[in-house]
Design a protein around this nucleic acid. Structure first.
Length: 474
RNA sequence: GGCCCCAUCGUCUAGCGGUCCAGGACGUCGCCCUUUCACGGCGAAAACACGGGUUCGAUUCCCGUUGGGGUCACCA
């Protein structure tokens, strides 16, 4: 019982508690983000706890993947990460205390008996609740072959004032005596979360909606132990386009999948934040503003569907806003993968110089990389189909005339090359497009590219003229 | 099926009894800009699930229906 305001404990302690059975899921990333924002907003602490209670399914690779995802999103946690498995002794101790105080009991029911009861209930189409004959007994037949169950109250009701879901009430008769300690003595998740959250001083439990039902059971342990109840906030899950809980069949579900797809962490972060939360008409919300504005009360109660198109749009925005050098660094390995060799530092510098022309045209880093390959491909350039079409007919002749005027230019600038090329179009009596398109094909091997005069400058005089010569008449 | 949650344009949302014949964003469709593709600018179509109440007045409050979702382990 803490009555003084001079306590050293922060007023807000949140945590993210993933189980390491896979990568960082997009939904998990959002709850992590909300926890992080809430803690930062209130000057509190954000803790990370790996729920590796299920040792068979927990792997180091998964732990690393989750940490990687957190770092990628810029969600730093306070202190070291906690591992639930390290606290088994403490969990067992709490179970023992509950046992001693009569809030829990040893249940010797066999797995078969449990199963039979469940099946019987199923057949009779009535709800199943464990009715252990051991609930009120203390004549324990032995020191093995039992589980420890919470002796949950049967009367009355349990109320949660959820910061997102509002007041939720469940009749205690609906809750059953959950297992606290398995027959091998290991703690169950239900026990472990509650004990760890308490021991870590967690004040606000912000997590997925799918845990709302668990909260009532967990409250049973908290009350039995006489611990302070945390503030709960159960945020709705993220759904796929079909309205069902987001899963593999909806496409990419891992945070790092989005990295691979060419999304920027700040774009994904902004998108996730706006999914189920809003601040007026604001759409583009950076970290700083997010910390300033985030509020649990504004989190919606309805699940929201993941919309890749909107993410694309946001990503395009952040791409355009991003530093050219940073983008060149991010795009370089992707370009290398496309052209089959690494880029030199000079080429990476060229990539950075091309960025102002490249980035407004891309929605993600992969598109960006693809659009940059023309800068680095060896002559003679391979043409894609549309580019090939642009080089038939009058094109070789026009290219020869372009070559003629460009090769004598004093100054190799966008302005100068434009004047020269326009001159060719005028003399030939054709629209600029008729000249520019074959030129584009010759220079880039594609029918689309950045502005053709910028391309000329980026490529430089020598390379440009050589590429034109490759395709012109004569 | 029991229990719990939810319900505004296709999608994300604003709205917290009258300012709403409902605002923004994405997407879609036009137009403009233009050497291509983008970017950018302008504009259009597009929603309060339904039925009862409460109220002078409901998108906003209550109940029900329908529809969606979550959850029911010695998994987490």
């Amino acid at each position: 019982m803490r009555l003084s305001a001079t306590s050293e404990a922060p007023a807000v302690v949140t945590r993210f508690a993933p189980s390491p059975t896979g990568f960082l899921h997009i939904g998990g990333a959002r709850t992590a983000l909300f926890n992080w924002l809430f803690a930062r907003r209130h000057g509190g602490k954000f803790l990370l706890r790996i729920e590796d209670t299920d040792r068979a399914r927990s792997t180091q690779e998964a732990i690393d993947a989750i940490l990687e995802g957190m770092r990628w999103l810029g969600l730093d946690w306070d202190g070291h990460e906690y591992y639930q498995s390290q606290f088994w002794a403490r969990h067992a101790e709490v179970a023992r205390e509950l046992l001693e105080r009569g809030h829990a009991y040893r249940c010797y029911m066999s797995a078969e008996a449990l199963k039979a009861g469940r099946e019987k209930a199923q057949a009779e189409r009535r709800p199943y609740r464990v009715e252990s004959p051991w609930r009120e007994r203390t004549d324990w037949p032995g020191d093995s072959g039992y589980v420890v169950r919470l002796k949950a109250p049967r009367e009355g009701e349990t109320v949660i004032e959820d910061r997102v879901q509002g007041r939720v009430v469940v009749k205690n008769a609906e809750l059953d005596d959950m297992v606290l300690l398995r027959s091998d003595g290991t703690p169950t998740y239900m026990l472990a979360v509650v004990v760890d959250d308490h021991d870590m001083g967690v004040t606000h439990v912000i997590r997925g909606d799918d845990h709302l039902n668990n909260a009532f059971r967990q409250l049973g342990i908290i009350k039995a132990m006489g611990w302070p109840e945390p503030v709960y906030a159960h945020v709705p899950l993220i759904h796929g386009a079909d309205g069902a809980k987001m899963s593999k069949r909806h496409g990419a579900t891992g945070v790092m999948d989005y990295d691979a797809l060419g999304y920027l962490p700040e774009a994904l972060s902004n998108y996730l934040l706006r999914l189920g939360w809003g601040h007026g008409d604001d759409e583009i919300i950076g970290r700083e503003e997010a910390v300033r504005w985030f509020d649990l009360d504004a989190v919606g109660r309805a699940p929201s569907r993941f919309d890749l198109k909107k993410l694309d749009n946001l990503n395009g925005h952040y791409l355009r806003e991003a530093d050219d050098g940073r983008l060149a660094g991010l795009a370089a390995p992707r370009v290398a993968g496309l052209i089959g060799r690494d880029l030199t530092s000079e080429e990476i510098a060229l990539l950075a110089r091309a960025m102002p022309e490249l980035k407004p045209r891309a929605r993600n880093l992969n598109e960006l990389a693809e659009s940059a390959t023309f800068l680095f491909r060896a002559r003679p350039l391979d043409m894609d189909e549309k580019a090939g079409q642009l080089l038939i007919g009058d094109a070789p002749r026009l290219l020869a005339r372009i070559y003629a005027v460009l090769s004598v230019l004093d100054e190799w600038t966008a302005l100068a090359t434009e004047a020269a090329v326009r001159g060719v179009a005028d003399t030939a009596g054709v629209k600029l497009g008729l000249v520019a398109q074959p030129l584009r094909a010759a220079l880039t091997g594609r029918a689309t590219s950045p502005g053709i005069f910028d391309v000329l400058v980026l490529l430089g005089r020598e390379e440009s003229l050589a590429r034109i010569a490759d395709r012109m008449e004569g």
